[in-house]
Simulated assay, not measured.
Amino acid sequence: MASAPQANNLPLLFKELVPLSTNEHKDWKARNVENAPWIVGQHAVPIAIDEFVHAQRFYPIVFSTGEEPVPLALMGLNEGVNMFVDDEGKLIDRPYVPAYIRRYPFMLARLRPDTDDLSLCFDPTAGVIGEFDEGAPLFENGEMGEPVKSVLGFCEQWEQSWQRTQAFMQEVKEAKLLIDGEVAIQPPGADKPFIYRGFQMVAEEKLREMRGDQARKLLGNGVLPLLYAHIFSLSLMSELFQKQMAAGKVPVQPVA
């Protein structure tokens, strides 16, 4: 269920990455887009802990597998299925949109391995900025225009939020709270349940067994409420499955 790394080693959604330049892109403009075709078929996206409270009302929140798990908002239970956008990438029912999606096609990236400086980069395949006849200028008189200032501020906020998310994940790992996830959903009339695996989740029994300093630490640093937001969100698995079933987007089970 959890998304595999992309072959080109670029972050999820990104096909190319180009530094934004006052020289090369001085005449470029940003245009408004109503659709986001880049998330069509994307069933899971990273989500920061600052978003858990809002996101858990719409999406199941799980954790990826591997040694360095990250939180993921599930937009579908199967690879290639996103139940929150139509085939053109238009949002359905106006759900909360994770910041990772709102940030695209921009991100801050380290261009040289010998420095920690981050540069504002973008994916030119998105078609959001370019040499358009209409739109908001990216630069004015060699200085950043409002679109660039806004995007830069948002990307900086994302980086800070993701640092807090990484610290949160370190606390969860040290507490050994994650287990391999498994969800079984039995549709009416089906011979057997649909089984979903390939993600991690918090073991509720481990939370209940916590005592003393460990429990006080997780409560004091704000980790415990976030863990319960994740746990509460898992109830949406069944609702998401029903949406997929109604849309005919549940894979046919093999005959035993």
Rank of each mutant, 00 (worst) to 15 (best):
T125D: 06
L91I: 07
L74V: 10
D180M: 08
S161V: 14
P95Y: 02
E239N: 14
L91H: 02
V128S: 05
T165A: 10
E51Y: 10
A167G: 02
Y104G: 04
R31K: 06
Y104L: 15
V172M: 13
F84W: 05
A7L: 03
Y96R: 01
F199Q: 01
F14R: 03
V33P: 01
I185D: 11
N141L: 15
A215L: 10
E171C: 14
S161M: 06
L227V: 13
P187V: 15
Q170H: 09
R103A: 09
A136T: 11
A184D: 14
F58Q: 01
A190R: 02
V62F: 01
A126I: 13
A229E: 06
A167N: 11
T115A: 12
H43S: 05
D116T: 14
E140M: 13
A109W: 11
R216C: 07
F168R: 00
Q242R: 15
S238Q: 15
R197H: 03
Q253G: 10
L178E: 04
G189P: 00
N23K: 05
F132N: 08
R94Y: 14
I195E: 13
P188W: 15
R211A: 08
I179T: 12
Y228C: 04
G153A: 11
E174Q: 10
E146T: 03
V250G: 02
Q160P: 08
G248W: 03
Y100M: 03
R31I: 14
M210W: 06
L138E: 00
A126P: 01
F194V: 08
E68F: 02
E134F: 10
E79R: 09
D133Q: 09
E79V: 15
Q56T: 06
A184V: 14
E146K: 04
A190E: 09
M107K: 07
Q6W: 09
K176E: 09
R94Q: 03
E131Y: 06
V148R: 00
Q157A: 13
G142K: 05
V62K: 00
H230Y: 03
P37H: 04
